[in-house]
């Protein structure tokens, strides 16, 4: 049901942008609070202040980078859905690679190719894990020891009701 909880396509860009931004800010706060405390001069108070300063200055930047990634990814995803008229894992993988390429566009062709490969592989891993989870959760709905009826009996006897289904 996760797939149906998402917004329809043009608004999905805004939604993904916000989700990526909040993920980046919260994750960046955790990471930079530790890094800021480690880089601060010794002393309890100094480390606390350094940690807060690092959060204040760096967490929004991390969030912004995440938001750019999420918004661009979602834009490519929606464009691919519109062009290909279907939604499948290849859309996500392609848009991941395209996002990586576009974001490294100022650094030259080699950097673009490397970034595109990283983006594609990352999204392929995410999609693969998603498909794996779906398979594993579908496994528990499989009927235990299903009784298949032999269809070869049917055409000989013809429709004889009341004998098989007692």
């Amino acid at each position: 049901m996760e797939e149906y909880a998402r917004e329809p396509c043009p608004w999905r860009i805004v939604d993904d942008c916000g989700g990526a931004f909040s993920m980046g800010v919260i994750g960046g706060s955790v990471v930079h609070s530790i890094i800021g405390a480690r880089n601060a001069p010794a002393g309890y108070r100094h480390r606390l202040v350094g940690s807060f300063l690092a959060i204040k200055h760096k967490a929004p930047v991390v969030g912004g980078n995440f938001a750019v990634w999420g918004g661009l990814f979602s834009t490519f995803d929606c464009a691919l859905v519109h062009i290909r008229k279907k939604e499948d894992p290849w859309n996500s993988i392609t848009s991941g690679a395209l996002t990586g390429a576009v974001l490294a566009a100022r650094n030259g062709a080699v950097a673009m190719a490397g970034s595109a490969m990283i983006g594609g592989v990352l999204l392929a891993m995410i999609e693969g894990v998603g498909i794996l989870m779906t398979r594993m959760s579908a496994e528990q709905f499989r009927p235990v020891n299903p009784q298949m009826e032999d269809p070869s009996q049917l055409d000989q006897k013809g429709p004889s009701f009341g004998t098989q289904y007692q």
Partner: peptide, 11 residues
């Protein structure tokens, strides 16, 4: 509405 709000204010 949270993510849509955050995303739209970002944009």
């Amino acid at each position: 509405l949270a993510f849509s709000q955050i995303g739209s204010s970002c944009l």
